[in-house]
Design a binder for these strands. Sequence first.
DNA 1: TTATTAAAATTACATACGTAATCTTCATTG
DNA 2: CAATGAAGATTACGTATGTAATTTTAATAA
Lengths: 128, 128
Amino acid sequence: MSDQPAAISEAESRVMDVLWQRAPQTSGEIVAILAEPTGWHEKTIRTLLNRLLGKGAISASKDGRRYLYSPRLRREDWQQLESRSLLDRVFGGKVAPLLAHFSQHEELTAKDLAELRKLIDAIDRKAR
Amino acid sequence: MSDQPAAISEAESRVMDVLWQRAPQTSGEIVAILAEPTGWHEKTIRTLLNRLLGKGAISASKDGRRYLYSPRLRREDWQQLESRSLLDRVFGGKVAPLLAHFSQHEELTAKDLAELRKLIDAIDRKAR
DNA sequence: TTATTAAAATTACATACGTAATCTTCATTG
DNA sequence: CAATGAAGATTACGTATGTAATTTTAATAA
C-alpha cells in the first residue's frame, strides 16, 4: 500500500498557511502570527506543529536550540488533494456537476469571470 | 448560535447515497445494497444509520416493528455545504482559484468547457 | 409455547482532532 | 550559581469517526 499523505486537519491548515506565506519560521514567530486571529493558546499551536511534523507535512531544521520550520507539502499539491477528495466524495468524481453547482450557487466577481474566460480560451486553444 | 447541520462523515455519506437513490428503505435493504461494495458489516451500516438519525440527516418512520428511512438532507444542499467548506478552507473563499485549479489539473471534456462557457455567459448577462 | 431471528438500542474500542497542561532542557539573567 | 523562561517533548482529555459486538425486543416458526 503506498499510503497517500496523511490528511491535514482544518486547524493544522491554519499553521500551514503561515508557513506557505513565509518560511522558514520559528515556532515563536508562528505563534505570534496565529495566536491573535485564532484565539489559540501557544501550546495548541506547538502541538499542531508537532502533528504536522509527524505527518511529514513540514520539516524542522535545528537552529541553535530551536527549530526552523518549513513546509514540505506545497499548497498547490494540498489544494489538489483536497479538491480531488471533494470531487470524489461529493460529486462522484465528475467535474461538470461541480462546475454547474458553483455556477448556480456562488457569486463570481467580474474579475473572476474575466479570469475564467481567459482560462477557458487557453484550454480551448491548447485542446486542438 | 444557529448551529449549522452536523457534518456527514465519509462513511455516512455512503449511506446517504443509497437513500438519495431511493427512499424510503428499510435498514435491511440498505444493508443489502451497501455491504458488498463497502465490505462493511451489517452492524456497521446500522450504526451509521443511527448516527445519521442523531444528526437529523435522515428520518425514520415506523412500519410495523421496523423503520423506513428517508433522507431529510437533500443531496443538493449537502453538496452546497461541502463545496462551501472546501472553498473556504482551501481556497480562501474565492471561486476563481478553485475553478482555475480544476481546469489546470482535471481533464475537462469539451462538454465541460462548453458548459462552463455557457455558465459564464449566463452569469455575465445577469450581472448587468 | 418456546426457540429463533431480524431489527433496534446500547456499548465498545482504536485512531484522529481540537485544545491544552505538564514536564524537561537549556540558555540567559541576576 | 540559582532562578527564570522559552522551546520542545510528553501526556491529557473530550468529541468524532470507523468499525463493530453485545443486549434487548418483538415477531415468527417449530
